[in-house]
Nucleic acid binder design. Structure first.
Length: 578
RNA sequence: GGGUCAGUAGCUCAGUUGGAUAGAGCACAGGCCUUCUAAGCCUGGGGUCGGGGGUUCGAACCCCUCCUGGCUCACCA
């Protein structure tokens, strides 16, 4: 991704340093900037340029190169206060006075929009996430895609992208042929009015067991699905009933999580749009008949073939996904279409992205297809399966979270107002944060005590530090104007560290969408909260010196804003009290 | 068996694209609330970065190989 930070008004120290080194070395600014690093030991400055990389081409020792560059470097002291040579490194110390002013002004200027930008202007992003199967429980296996997708959606939007969130419901396929078959056989035994999903699940498990015993039942199920595709009235009516009951249940969970979608067009929506996919593939000579099915051969790409038409003539998941790509390209003119789906389907997405290239689409669209893959949530005993009946429902998890938080509140702060409301924000915040704080690729072994931990690097920790900033501001009883702030009062070690962290909020958000990795933001918020905690413990905020007090209150307010904004982007609400 | 992802402290994980003495949290041991919220802060111990080769000024990171685990390899989604 090219540098899109130019429309971002805050001073870009790294950029300036690279510019100056570039002038001296005659190496491109961009290349130099990519070499510049942030020392892990802050005593080595804020930015460092390692000269080792130049040693070979310049035929000199890195230390000598470093000294020579340093001698020629002219950077205004207002920007860089000190330049050191250490080993083969040139270390840059930014001017703290300037940093403090820049950050404070920016945050005062942008208020609640601090960190946002319009870098995504005129770019259309689709994020497909959650996508539960109707007539099945919404279980903890669906949680990660839901919160990851929502987070990416939020951040793309915050950075100015025109973003569309799609819940690609699993509302089609042989499974509905199965449920219809089960309902046909035993429907009168079940009352679907209460706990409809539970009842449908029971039917599903029961028919599945029968299918295992009796191949002809499975065939009947497939036939039902075929009828459904052909708009058979009886099957369609049942399917609509199941879908509506399911959506009603799912929406309860989405409401609790605070998640919304711009579209809930599921697979069924594309059922009558698959013929075009077949036609285009056929026209392009990409369709082959194999064992009665229509396939696209991908052996030249080192992949197994992609089935687009089953031997009984029915469409399949891939066909509908390909139809969706066509539809979305035309409807949304997307620059990126992002699928947040677990790593189970890595190969599958590689296949359909490859087949999509044969659909006569502009390269823009096929290049814009992205699979954001994440490790699945599993139980210690293995994979969850609706068929096996060993699932943990999201609603149960959230209720348990809230109940455990209530216990803690009753113990620590029994007189709290709006206990229930705050417990909800804290409990759900903990669950959401827990789902976002680790690298996506890692699989998760579900553990109640891990998910519902409220100490250390957790959602509640961020919320706690936020509530603390609120409480300080409340006690102070006023908020100073920026023109009253004496920035030199914020130049102690702890304040600087906080401000440096606030400074990199926007670049953190950009890293999240560039790498499709929400954990970068989650960790950033932990870091900011820790930095503020150190500041808080080292410094008296409300104190005798009015100038110092004003400056520290301003800093406190800034931290609160960034924590709240960042948490909101993750999908967490902030409680008022803890 | 092929492909792919992962393996870092007792446990859960970071590690800014190959850089300076590998860092947090939990747990453990100790300290800090008559002073802005102790769901917090500070101090301490704890490492063959899965094993072995290689690439180079330099490797947790790149290449090879082996070990372990997840996922996956045509009519489910």
């Amino acid at each position: 991704m090219q540098d899109k930070g130019e429309n971002y008004r805050m001073i870009n120290f790294k950029h300036i340093i690279a510019d100056e080194i570039s002038k001296i070395t005659n190496i491109e600014q961009k290349e130099i900037e990519s070499y510049i690093e942030v020392p892990n030991n802050t005593e080595n400055g804020d930015y460092a340029f390692p000269c080792f990389k130049l040693a070979k081409s310049m035929k000199k020792a890195p230390q000598i190169i470093a000294s020579e560059i340093k001698e020629k470097l002219v950077i205004d002291e207002i920007i860089i206060s000190k330049i050191d040579v250490a080993g083969g490194y040139i270390n840059f110390y930014i001017n703290n006075d300037t940093l403090v002013k820049e950050v404070c002004k920016e945050i005062d200027d942008k208020k609640e929009k601090y960190g946002s930008s319009d870098e995504g202007k005129n770019q259309n992003i689709i994020v497909e996430y959650s996508a539960p199967n109707i007539a099945k429980e919404f279980h903890i296996g669906h949680l990660r895609t839901t919160v990851i997708g929502a987070c990416l959606y939020n951040i793309f939007k915050y950075l100015g992208y025109n973003t569309t969130g799609i819940n690609h419901l699993g509302d089609y396929g042989t499974q509905f042929g199965k449920i219809i078959e089960g309902y046909k056989r035993w429907g009168n035994e079940y009352n679907l009015d209460e706990n409809p999903i539970e009842k449908l699940t029971e039917i599903y498990i029961r028919i599945n067991d029968l299918c295992k015993e009796d191949e002809s039942v499975l065939e009947a199920c497939r036939e039902n699905f075929k009828k459904l595709e052909n708009k058979d009235p009886y099957c369609t009516q049942l399917w609509e009933k199941f879908k509506n009951l399911s959506l009603k249940e799912f929406n309860k969970t989405y409401d609790i999580l605070g998640i919304k979608f711009d579209s809930t067009k599921g697979e069924a929506f594309y059922a009558d749009k698959t013929q075009e996919v077949i036609d285009i593939l056929k026209k392009n000579g990409k369709l082959e008949e194999s064992q009665g099915a229509e396939i696209v051969d991908l052996s030249d790409k080192g992949m197994p073939p992609c089935i687009v038409c089953k031997s009984n003539g029915s469409s399949i998941y891939a066909t509908r996904d390909l139809a969706a790509i066509l539809y979305r390209a035309r409807t949304y003119d997307f620059d990126k279409c992002i699928y947040v789906v677990s790593d189970e389907q890595n190969l599958y997405f590689k296949q359909i992205f490859e087949v999509a290239k044969y659909l006569d689409l502009d390269k823009k669209y096929t290049d814009g297809l992205v699979h954001v893959s994440y490790g699945m949530t599993r139980l210690a005993t293995g994979k969850m399966s609706t068929r096996e009946g060993n699932v943990i429902k999201v609603n149960d998890l959230l209720n348990e979270a809230i109940s455990r938080v209530l216990d803690i509140i009753n113990e620590k702060n029994p007189n709290m107002e709006e206990k229930q409301e705050n417990a909800k924000k804290i409990g759900i915040g903990a669950v959401i944060f827990n789902n976002l704080c680790n690298t996506l690729a890692k699989e998760q072994i579900f553990d109640w005590n891990n998910v519902l931990n409220f100490n250390g690097e957790t959602g509640p920790y961020i919320q706690y530090i936020y509530v603390r900033t609120k409480s300080v501001l409340e006690k102070a009883g006023y908020e100073p104007e920026i023109k009253e702030i004496d920035f030199t009062k914020l130049e102690d070690k702890e304040s600087i560290k906080v401000l440096k962290t606030i400074y990199k909020f926007n670049e953190t958000l950009r890293a999240v969408i560039e790498k499709y990795e929400p954990s970068i933001l989650a960790r950033y918020l932990i870091e900011l909260a820790q930095n503020y905690s150190n500041f808080y413990n080292e410094n008296k905020i409300i104190c005798d010196d009015k100038k110092v007090q004003d400056a520290r209150i301003f800093l406190t307010k800034a931290v609160g804003k960034v924590l709240k904004t960042g948490a909101k982007l993750l999908g967490m609400e902030m409680p008022d009290k803890m």
